[in-house]
Amino acid sequence: MHPVRKKRMITIAVILVILAAAIGLVMYALSQNINLFYSPTQIAQGEAPHNVTIRAGGMVVEGSVERHSETLDVAFSVTDYQHNVRIQYTGILPDLFREGQGIVAQGKLNENGVLIASEVLAKHDEEYMPPEVTDALEKAKAQ
C-alpha cells in the first residue's frame, strides 16, 4: 500500500480506537443510569434508594395480583426468580399486563420495601406465536 494511505489508515484507526474506548468507559461508568430499571435482587440488596422515584422491573408472580373490588387499586409482586418486590398501583394497567408477563413500574419505595407505583408499563418478550399454537401447547400440557 502507498505509504501516505497507510499513514492515514493508521491515524484513523488509532483515533477510532481511542474514541471507542472513551465512549465505552463513559457508558460503563454510567451503566446504572442507563439501566431502565432495578431488578428485584438489586432492590433486595438495598441498591435502590428509598423515597426517590425509581423503576423496578420483573415478571409478575402467578397468583400474586390482588385487585380492590371498588377502586382501581391493585397490588402484585414481581420477581426475577431470586427475590420478589411488592408493588402497589392505582390506575389502569396496560393490556399486556398479566401474570407471568414482564413489567416495569415507576414509583417510590416506602419503608417496608413496597414500591408505590405511579406508572406501570408492560414489557414484551421476543417470542411471537399464533394463538392456535399456544392453544395446542396448552392442550398438550393438559394431557
Binding site: 431502565l36 422491573g57 421476543e126 411471537y128 399464533p130
Partner: peptide, 24 residues
C-alpha cells in the same frame, strides 16, 4: 443485552432459530 431495557431483545439471531414460526 448490556442494560435493562423496556425494548425486548432480538427475535432474530444469526446463530439460533428465530423465536417466531415461519408463517410469521
Amino acid at each position: 443485552e448490556w442494560w435493562n431495557t423496556l425494548h425486548q431483545p432480538a427475535t432474530f439471531k444469526l446463530t439460533e432459530k428465530p423465536s417466531m414460526p415461519m408463517e410469521m
